[in-house]
Design a protein around this nucleic acid. Structure first.
Length: 602
RNA sequence: UGCCCGAUGGUGUAACGGUAGCACAGCAGACUCUGAAUCUGUUUGUCGUGGUUCAAAUCCACGUCGGGCAACCA
């Protein structure tokens, strides 16, 4: 096969402005190796917006033979928690598993940067361990863990001291309000011209815990009236007498994001530091800090792209936390949540999420992506992989009056028409069945080609039946349908080729199993829940979860958590972790496209 | 208000001075023992005004609109 053919056969390689930059750097051998990082703050669960970033950063590492470090950006102990550290690791492993897990940069447990001394000052470097799968890591003697910005608190502190010595940082005693006001007005702090010795002394005393929270900060000395406010002598360190989930009580001063982030990137040898657009105005500060320290190794650079916005959902961690804390959902992993753990629990696969990330692309334009793009990626993936099964969500009883009582036939049903190699299974047929309530209409609307009085319909994999009689209870509700079957119409039978317009699904009443089915729908009724400042809680969808007891074909008793199912003509489903033996719970991942629903509306 | 960034069909994106393409959505049809999938066709677009050029979505200027930042959060 020629190279051209190969290229044509392979899925198109992702291309975007960041990858173009990286490709150019690779072309000119600018770095020995491409090194990205994914640096979440462990103050909440990861959501689909983070998934976009993970796919970008690990995708680049994968495509250019590089590495992507997982790093906890944990510089604010009062907002962070070990629960989030753990969920982040699980979500990242799940999303990159089997795809880029060999590009995941981790470090040996407890390891901190190596120090190299030269020209009278220290250089710090913490190389990654990579190239192992999650499974290999689990069975290895060396316990690996993510990187933590908190691992560099000693080094970051030393860099702060160095900045002071260079006359580029000072301790400021103003109150937060004063600082605010001075910065807004471009006025210099009265403490700006303290001597190096003085600053060193104050900063040491800050570290030693002599002062209360908020009474002093370390600030960079850049330009008090800079047009870019992030250059107006920004804060580098603040006092917080708080225990840290990683460093415990060791510190009472913590570096600010801007100071810690660029230096963490440097210490890890990151080449391309990719973040979202709101950090664009911070880039001059990112560069200023690294350049002011006159560091010996190549410096990392920051690149920004637009964060993901999806309609019919919200993405802010703070607001997602509100949903959790106010019990508007069952938890961070509620299948209605846009969190990675919620999406996973819903039954979406990592491949589907990655395809979605690939399809939406990377730009600097802040758009609003239609959820239908996500839904398409999910359906496309599930259509190819899911096992077909018959299940009735809202049953109505059918009796085949010309079918012998007590007789049972085992009929062949295909597992997945998209993948014939998945074979067939048997499903039992008998005189009494359940069909879907929506598949019968006493007064059929136009173009309704399902079951109606006197009408015929194909029972999937079984016979063509005709509705002879509608039996109602005292209240006038339909209790039972009495039908006759064309007993020659079974697959392979004499009249099996007869054309009937509709085919419906069914289960045998005597053989079916009851399962709990959770029917999820979008969490919000409005495309833009927060449009014009409206409270997102006022547009929560009251029908985002409906629970029914469904009747399933017996093979579903052996359902596994890894397998995805399509209940034919309805939707895709996955086993929920609430399932117990004999008490299965299925989550509806996503419905099938429903052309009839659209037609019926007309 | 200052600074930064952006603008291509309904939505998301491609075109890197040379035929505006793709995906989703929509619409119409074919096929169908899933009203799914698949297949075919199709509606809709370069924010505006100037300029440079043989040629502008692309380069330049001005304007318009949108977003971000102005936390001892990240």
């Amino acid at each position: 096969m020629s190279l051209e053919n190969n290229a044509a056969a392979a899925p198109a390689a992702p291309s975007d402005f960041i990858r173009d930059i990286v490709a150019a750097h690779v072309g000119e051998h600018k770095y020995p190796r491409i090194h990205t990082r994914f640096p979440p703050e462990p103050n909440g669960y990861l959501h689909i917006g983070h998934a976009k970033s993970i796919c970008l950063n690990f995708g680049i590492a994968r495509e250019f033979g590089g590495i992507c470090n997982l790093r906890m950006d944990d510089t604010n102990p009062t907002k962070e928690d070990i629960e989030y550290v753990e969920s982040i690791q699980a979500d990242v492993n799940w999303l990159i598993g089997g795809w880029a897990e060999d590009r995941l940069g981790l470090k040996p447990h407890g390891k901190t940067p190596e120090t190299k001394t030269g020209e009278g000052k220290n250089d710090f470097f913490l190389p990654p361990v990579f190239g192992t799968s999650e499974n290999e890591r689990k069975h290895s003697d060396v316990k690996l863990e993510p990187f933590y910005a908190s691992d560099y608190f000693d080094q970051i502190y030393e860099y702060a001291v160095e900045l002071i010595k260079r006359g580029k940082a000072f301790v400021c005693d103003m109150t937060p309000d004063q600082t605010d006001e001075y910065r807004r007005n471009g006025k210099a702090s009265p403490f700006r011209d303290r001597s190096v010795a003085e600053n060193l002394d104050w900063f040491t005393r800050m570290k030693n815990g002599e002062f209360a929270d908020g009474t002093r900060v370390l600030r960079a000395k850049i330009q008090v009236d800079a047009a870019n406010v992030w250059l107006r002598d920004p804060l580098l360190y603040r006092i917080k007498h708080a225990d840290h989930h990683q460093t415990g009580g060791k510190w009472c001063i913590y570096p600010m994001y801007d100071f810690a982030h660029c230096l963490s990137d440097y210490v890890e040898g990151i080449t391309h530091s990719i973040c979202t657009l709101e950090f664009e105005v911070h880039r001059p500060l990112y560069d200023w800090i690294l350049e002011s320290l006159d560091l010996p190794r190549p410096l990392p650079h920051q690149y920004e792209f637009a964060r993901l916005s999806l309609n019919y959902t919200i993405m802010s961690k703070r607001k997602l936390m509100q949903l959790v804390q106010e019990n508007l959902v069952t938890g961070w992993d509620d299948p209605r949540m846009p969190t990675i753990s919620g999406i996973r629990r819903r039954g979406v696969t990592p491949e589907a999420l990655r395809n979605f990330a690939y399809n939406i692309g990377i730009t600097k334009y802040n758009g609003l992506t239609d959820v239908s793009v996500l839904e398409y990626a999910i359906r496309d993936d599930l259509n190819k992989r899911s096992l077909r099964r018959l299940a009735v969500l809202r049953p109505i009883k059918v009796v085949i009056t010309n079918y012998p009582a007590g007789q049972v036939e085992e009929l062949n049903a295909t597992n997945n028409p998209e993948q014939p190699e998945t074979g067939w299974r048997k499903i039992p047929f008998s005189r009494e069945l359940f069909i879907e309530r929506d598949d019968f209409a006493e007064v059929p609307p136009p173009k309704f080609f399902r079951l109606k009085p006197g009408g015929e319909v194909r029972l999937k994999y079984a016979y063509i039946i005709k509705c002879e009689e509608v039996i109602k209870d005292a209240a006038g509700n339909i209790a039972e349908l009495r039908c006759t079957a064309d007993l020659d119409s079974k697959t392979g039978g004499a009249t099996s080729a007869r054309k009937v317009k509709g085919t419906i699904h069914w289960v045998s009443a005597a053989h079916c199993v009851d399962v709990e089915v959770r029917l999820y729908d979008r969490l919000f009724t409005e495309a833009e829940p927060e449009k014009d400042g409206r409270d997102f809680k006022s547009v929560l969808n009251p029908h985002s979860l409906e629970v029914v007891t469904a009747k399933c074909e017996p093979s579903l008793k052996d359902a596994s958590a890894e397998t995805r199912y399509q209940f034919e003509r309805l939707a895709y489903f996955a086993l929920d972790l609430d399932s117990r033996p004999g008490r299965l719970v299925f989550n509806r991942t996503i419905t099938l496209k429903d052309a009839w629903a659209k037609e019926a509306k007309k």
